[in-house]
Design a protein around this nucleic acid. Sequence first.
DNA 1: TATGAATGAGGCTTCATTCAT
DNA 2: AATGAATGAAGCCTCATTCAT
Lengths: 200, 200, 200, 200
Amino acid sequence: MGTQRQRLPPTVRVGQILDAALQEFSIAGYAGTRMDDIALRAGLSKGGLYAHFSSKEQVFEALLARHLCPPRLDAHALVAGSSTPRHLAERLVNHLYASLANPAMIATMRLLLAESGRVPHLARRWRQDTADAHQNDIAQLLRLARERGLCGDGVALRHPWLLLSPVVHAIFMAILVGADERINLPERREAHVALICALL
Amino acid sequence: MGTQRQRLPPTVRVGQILDAALQEFSIAGYAGTRMDDIALRAGLSKGGLYAHFSSKEQVFEALLARHLCPPRLDAHALVAGSSTPRHLAERLVNHLYASLANPAMIATMRLLLAESGRVPHLARRWRQDTADAHQNDIAQLLRLARERGLCGDGVALRHPWLLLSPVVHAIFMAILVGADERINLPERREAHVALICALL
Amino acid sequence: MGTQRQRLPPTVRVGQILDAALQEFSIAGYAGTRMDDIALRAGLSKGGLYAHFSSKEQVFEALLARHLCPPRLDAHALVAGSSTPRHLAERLVNHLYASLANPAMIATMRLLLAESGRVPHLARRWRQDTADAHQNDIAQLLRLARERGLCGDGVALRHPWLLLSPVVHAIFMAILVGADERINLPERREAHVALICALL
Amino acid sequence: MGTQRQRLPPTVRVGQILDAALQEFSIAGYAGTRMDDIALRAGLSKGGLYAHFSSKEQVFEALLARHLCPPRLDAHALVAGSSTPRHLAERLVNHLYASLANPAMIATMRLLLAESGRVPHLARRWRQDTADAHQNDIAQLLRLARERGLCGDGVALRHPWLLLSPVVHAIFMAILVGADERINLPERREAHVALICALL
DNA sequence: TATGAATGAGGCTTCATTCAT
DNA sequence: AATGAATGAAGCCTCATTCAT
């Protein structure tokens, strides 16, 4: 009967499925997405999906797990390679906005926000594994920079998360309007560098 | 049978329904909320709901419309009543965090983020009616402060939205963890004041 | 609150309601018509309707009862006033098509067909009170015409209902296409007269 | 649980469903029939129905489409094979009443009449594809019969539809009383033959 | 009599999941 | 591993009927 689709190695199939799931979930949310939608976009049938994941919930959790571990900051390398405060600020900003260029990250973030009520354990895990870790990285970076004389005793030392606020702000807007051109990323990055310099 | 038949004026009922809808939608998102849930919490029957709203979608839109218009900033009054830059910063921060004390606003904001993919027109309207308006208010505030000698030629003049970033950051975290104590609002406000002072 | 509508004498109201009911029922059938539709068209509220009829079923039966008694044929007068077979045929045709000019009759007929499964007792009553009666009238007419020498021993004498077939055919088409101009009534009447003449 | 899971090829299932739908719709009309009824009679679940038809409306339309194309008349064969006018009339009547023996056709016709207000496009299509076509067939038949000397210049030549009226009349009554014995089909056929002979 | 909010049963449709093939 | 028909539990919405005003 129906066209016999390709039989692919499991790893490849799972990747395709999670890609499809991310797109569908982030358009319509968890409850609003149908297994058919995911299957269709992944290029197999609903039944085929269940050969790889035993439930919708499992697809969802596998999905968040894959995307919620952005690259950690290498504070030592960053400080060591920076000659001036402004240079350090620029390199830090480069790192922070790298993830904004990744639509998958924005989509996952929106999903996490949308479904945090339904899967609080995932939200908590993200906060601990990612948000707190990032903040600690920044704090360590500032200590190293202070030791090297790259900064003074500004507010940032006491409240390192302030340095993250503009990028969180940008992510917030990207989630809301769809990460399109209306965010004016270059301007935001420039302003962010200036803010960091002012706070160091 | 059943509960007493409470006959209320439409205005009152609509208020009750939107209150109930906010709570339910916040817990489970749009697709995850049932009209029965809303009706039950609002104290009438599912059928009764439809005497006031013709669809679930309409309830949702009315809900967002009600909460997404936070009070505008009175730039003149704020500048006029401030003697020092720090004083101005404190008063501005007071204003900005006022909405954070309103759980309904946080809940509505989370809903808007979560469902922005489904109702892009509402997201766009919010951006124009609220986000852009706020930014313009800040810009005007800075011009006035500059005239009065309350600030210099800092980054803020060119990128007024930087002054908003920490509060957006706070809202973001509040959405994610549920606006509970883990946000440490007093500390965030103090840091925010310091940031503004540094940027003025 | 809502505009207080006029309080009319019951007889008038009932008439308005049945007029409205006929229109609505014949558009959508019994189950497809809502009490609201009838009330709206009758110019009062759903609640007001229930002041005059205690159920939808009762409205329906009152409606059919009102329209399913078309005027009987006066065979004596018809024959007495006719000088030639053609003249008689013309007068008979005039009588038969009089009801076709009444949209209410077409609508009621359609209703009866549509709902005959649901209210077989009404269908049976119509057959006896109306269809059979008409046939008998025609039979009597033919006997009288035969006595007066206005017709011979044609088929019609043995099968009087044949004289009705063309008008039933026309009603059938009118029900199906909505009694509009596409029926070409004048042509049908002329043909009908010719048919009767041929059969007498 | 429940019934055995019967997995059938779509074509078979669709046939079963339409058979079931015809019975149910005929009993209660469109609005009065529930998808559960159709599913139950077709031997699958309500949900299973939706694997083959995407809505109740679609079931209804497919149903009418299936039964509203009665066999066309082969005018040439009919005329060629007839030796006398009466013989021709008898063969024509045989053809016309063939469909009356098919209860499915009567039921479908009743449905079309009952719901013509709701689906005017189907009524129009039936008129064009079936009614008009039949009339043209009769007209052609008469022309051929005229050429062969099987008939004269009667009314029928100018109004061929007159020859159809008695069968439409019979269908009408069959719809109204349920196609049972009360129609007296043999008598009607005989009368019809006589009528045709009189009009040729 | 009349209004219209309210009820509650019921219908249409959707969709996660199962399973014969 | 894959397909897609089938199931069954919900969910949205409708509407005849009731009743406080």
